[in-house]
Simulated scan of single mutants.
Amino acid sequence: MTYEGVLTKMQTEFSNPIQYYLVFENSFLSLNQLLDKSMEINFIGYQCLNCGKKKKIFRQGFCYDCFMSSASAGDWIMKPELSTAHLDIEDRDLEYEKKVQLQPHIVYLALSSEVKVGVTRKTQVPTRWIDQGAVQAIPIVEVPNRFLAGITEVALKNHFADKTNWQKMLKNETPEVDLLKEKSSLKYLIPKEVQEYYDVDKNDLYKLHFPVLEYPKKVTSLNLDKSPNFSGKLTGIKGQYLLFEDGTVFNVRTFEGYVVKISI
């Protein structure tokens, strides 16, 4: 069987274990069913996820021109504290920015390689934590816009990491941490503008289980630009990574906008 199309991040279903799907324009692939089976990935070309042109991908699935101009690639995406839609100030497209920024956001703690603090739209729970490869996560506050979430994250970055060590995450090197206890200690670290949204007694602890037969001891990242053809036996899926028997790992999200042919 062969599947061909433009890579986008794997779609997921929150279950035990998490279910993963690669979705193409005219077909989809249930990846959990491929565990312990061989698959081949062949890089064919590029297709920008924004303009659809066959232009080299620059970042986040976009060609350079789209990345520099699209409202969905503004700096506030990676730095929520830069959000300005609540002030009626435009970055690139105020209508789009209001739609995304002026909705409920969650500030959370997630446990993957270590405890990290992060921000996500409420509609992205628990997808955001699945994509990060977190084994546990807990919301800290729910706020009405992205700016308030951003300043809360900035305040907590002094006490927690804000990035995942992807190699430790993929090797399942996860410390023993009580996220309920961590959350209970945060009240006086949260900005005063956000204090009213903090509820120490609301403890929605999420536990995530990934479809992994065997975790690698060493990892080597597959780069389609340097190695356009790869084949191996799939032994696990975690975060947005495919894990292979030889220790090769493939970050699907990194290669969004790449056109591939997958043979099973």
Rank of each mutant, 00 (worst) to 15 (best):
T2A: 14
Y3V: 07
E4Y: 08
E4F: 10
G5Y: 05
G5S: 07
L7T: 01
M10V: 09
E13F: 11
F14D: 07
F14R: 02
N16K: 15
Y21N: 08
Y21G: 03
E25H: 08
S30H: 14
L31I: 12
N32P: 03
Q33P: 00
Q33T: 08
L34Y: 14
L35I: 11
E40H: 13
I41E: 01
I41P: 02
G45W: 01
Y46F: 15
Y46E: 02
L49E: 02
G52A: 08
K53D: 10
K55L: 14
F58A: 07
R59H: 10
D65F: 13
S69P: 03
S70Q: 09
S70D: 12
A71N: 02
G74R: 11
D75P: 12
W76I: 04
I77H: 13
I77V: 15
P80V: 05
L82Q: 08
S83M: 07
T84H: 12
A85M: 02
H86V: 00
D88T: 02
D88G: 13
D91Q: 13
R92Y: 10
D93I: 02
L94H: 09
E95P: 00
E97K: 11
K99V: 00
L102Y: 08
Q103E: 06
L109V: 05
A110T: 01
L111E: 00
S112V: 00
E114F: 00
V117K: 07
R121H: 14
W129V: 00
I130A: 07
G133C: 08
A134E: 00
P139H: 06
P139W: 02
P139R: 09
P139Q: 07
I140V: 15
P144W: 05
F147T: 01
F147I: 01
I151G: 10
K157C: 12
D162V: 06
K163S: 15
Q167W: 01
Q167K: 15
Q167T: 10
N172H: 11
N172L: 01
E173D: 13
T174K: 07
P175M: 06
P175G: 04
S184E: 13
K187E: 14
L189C: 05
E196L: 11
Y198G: 06
D199A: 13
V200L: 14
V200S: 14
K202W: 04
K202S: 13
K202F: 08
N203T: 10
D204T: 09
Y206E: 01
H209G: 00
V212I: 08
L213W: 03
E214L: 11
K217Q: 13
K217W: 02
K218H: 13
K218N: 13
T220K: 15
I237N: 04
G239C: 09
Q240K: 12
Y241G: 08
L243K: 05
D246A: 06
G247I: 03
T248D: 04
V260W: 02
V260Y: 11
I262L: 14
I264E: 09
I264N: 09
